[in-house]
Design a protein around this nucleic acid. Sequence first.
DNA 1: TATAATTTGCGAATCATTGGCAGAACCATG
DNA 2: CATGGTTCTGCCAATGATTCGCAAATTATA
Lengths: 127, 127
Amino acid sequence: MCAEYATRPREQIAQILRSERRYLSAAEVFQALQRARARVSLSTVYRTLDRLRAKGEASSRIDEQGEATYVICTTSHHHHAICRVCGHVEEVACDPMERFTEALKAYHGFELDAHAMEFFGRCARCR
Amino acid sequence: MCAEYATRPREQIAQILRSERRYLSAAEVFQALQRARARVSLSTVYRTLDRLRAKGEASSRIDEQGEATYVICTTSHHHHAICRVCGHVEEVACDPMERFTEALKAYHGFELDAHAMEFFGRCARCR
DNA sequence: TATAATTTGCGAATCATTGGCAGAACCATG
DNA sequence: CATGGTTCTGCCAATGATTCGCAAATTATA
């Protein structure tokens, strides 16, 4: 009980996320599937994206229009630099956070246990 | 043309945001208004919150359930440390970002022009 | 191939948010 | 303090992303 099946739709969805290194909404993934002649329902796209996020294989963010978007992650703890031009996502390590954590506690009395960051600009190729 | 009226509903909504220093959804603001016997429609709450954000007097974030939430801001460019216990929002300056910006460019070739950060933990009172 | 568990597709339901519009509130002016 | 043009508000319907329920299809295993 509670095993896990490797299915065609899941592989097709993961494929699309792997090939595009940028945040995609469920609708965008669905459109990409249709272009690739893959017959996967929108429901399955939603379920699979959420499943990838739950497993830590993808991370999600809410875009300006309030839609959930997803991107495949390769390293564990990091943040995203998002290119304004092409949407490319660069993974950024966050080693300097330790010092910041100390300052936050000393100055605001605030004990940090998690953080989220997003950086916007132009990636190397788009500059 | 294009003047701006000071109205009762707007003042009542701002009052609630000022008294609670934490992120509130439109529905939560609406409920607080009802508790205070203020008769303001949910539509007006939505419009007023969006207006405050557009004027830079409030900042918004999408919470875990995908709902838009709002908090009053007092300083200009800063980030938020959000207490996991009481929801209190602490404003944090971000002076150290300049050095980070340089590193990002040198290491990833990424030219930063904006960033967003959120910090989660326990505020001074809740520790 | 038969069987049990898991996943999918479809359509309906949900729910926050937005839009349209008629009436109410606001405020500068006479 | 009455008037009139502008700006807001309330109501209610519409939108649109996301979720749910369930029967049929797919997968793994023997």
